[in-house]
Every structure is written in C-alpha cells, then in structure tokens.
C-alpha cells in the first residue's frame, strides 16, 4: 500500500480532514474546489502540520501525531508539483531542474536505486521534451512549458512519491491533452506512487488507478 493517510486540521473556521489509502499507480483525490485538497497535499509533503492523525507512504511513517513523528519537508522526498509552477526565477531551466539533484545522488548511494545524475537527467529531459528549454529563463516560458519543467524538477529530486496539485488547471484543451499524456507516461514509466488532486471528474477518471472522493 503506497499511501496511508488519515489526517485532520482546523484552519480558521474550516475543518479539513482526509482519510484514504492507495495502492499502486496513481491515486486521485477528487473533490469540488475549496474542499482543502491542496492543504491535504501540503500535509503529506510536510509543509503543513496536521492537528492529528498519521501519514504513511510506502511503509514509511512521515507523520504520526500520537507517536510524535514529524519528518521535516526536506527529508520526506516528496516530488511535489504545485498548482503554479514555482520555478526559481533567478535560475535558468537547467539549474531549476538540478536544484534537487543533490538529494537524488544521496538517495542513490543509500537506496541503491537506478543511476541518478547525468543519465537520469537525460532520461527526464527526453521524457518531458525539455531539451530546447534548458537555457531559458523561467519568465520566458509558456504555462505548459513551465509546468513540464516543474514536473521534471520534481522527478529529478530523487522522490519517493509524487504529489500533483491540479496538474491540468489553467491549460487550454490542446495543452491539457499534452499534459495528460505526460502524466500518464510518468505514471507508467517512472512508476512512483502518485497522489493527484483534481476537481475535474474526467481527469480523475482518466488519470486515476483509483479515485478517492473527499
């Protein structure tokens, strides 16, 4: 079981709670806008601290209120693709892609995964068709391009699992199709546990190996 999440958090006057478990492939969290889906992802990533409950991914406990476990965000190995690309504006695309690379090499040493570094980078660049963008500044990228870079940056950080927040929002129809293909490719080729948040039922249907309604 890849995701085992049972969390609750009070933010202002709203109570956000989520309880689900997911197996192989992509787990889609499906809920209308404003249900606190992003907060759930933030709690899984370690950016927001739940009031109670637990977060386990691939058997590792990342948070457990009762056992006082709270792994800091930088050690959770979450490949988090945010709703907005959040590329670092002072770094070119290639430097953005390599920002998390240091952890990737470290993870490789300990976990004996596939070779990280140059080979992994070349693979991701090919998978996401990033080659023509490497030398560009983030501000010159289109929305779709920036999102591909953001996905690449998350994949190259040596993640143990992926979090995707509304990966298709604010893309036009053609770009949506393209992004959908890319996510399916990542899901089927990189084979990391994936948690995808969406409010679009079609998207949920197509991307999710299983769909959880909040």
């Amino acid at each position: 079981m890849s995701f085992d999440v049972d969390i609750a958090k009070r933010l202002g006057t709203t109570e956000i709670s989520a309880r689900f478990s997911g197996g192989e492939g992509a787990t889609v969290l499906f809920a209308p806008s404003g249900a606190g889906k992003t907060s759930v992802l933030n709690m899984v990533a370690g950016l927001l601290r739940p009031d109670r409950g637990h977060v386990r991914v691939g058997g590792d406990t990342l948070f457990d209120a009762a056992r006082r476990i709270d792994v800091p965000a930088e050690r959770r190995r979450a490949g988090y693709v945010f709703q907005e690309p959040r590329l670092f504006p002072h770094l070119r695309v290639q430097a953005n892609l390599r920002y998390g690379g240091r952890r990737a090499t470290k993870a490789h040493e300990t976990a004996q995964q596939e070779p990280g570094g140059a080979q992994a980078e070349a693979d991701i660049v090919r998978l996401l068709e990033l080659a023509p963008l490497l030398d560009r500044w983030p501000r010159t990228l289109s929305g779709g391009e920036a999102r591909r870079v953001a996905i690449g940056r998350a994949l190259l950080s040596g993640p143990a699992f992926l979090l995707l927040d509304e990966p298709l929002a604010s893309l036009d129809r053609a770009r949506r199709e393209e992004a959908m293909r890319i996510i399916e490719r990542v899901r089927d080729e990189v084979r990391l546990p994936m948690l995808i948040v969406t409010h679009d039922p079609q998207e949920a249907e197509r991307l999710g190996t299983q769909v959880v309604e909040l």
Partner: peptide, 13 residues
C-alpha cells in the same frame, strides 16, 4: 511558496 518548493526538493532551511 518558492521557499517551500525548495524544501520539498530536499533543501535544508
């Protein structure tokens, strides 16, 4: 949000 993105990429504070 850029700082939290960097943290999820493994960067210490």
């Amino acid at each position: 949000r850029l700082e939290s993105a960097a943290r999820t990429l493994g960067a210490s504070r």
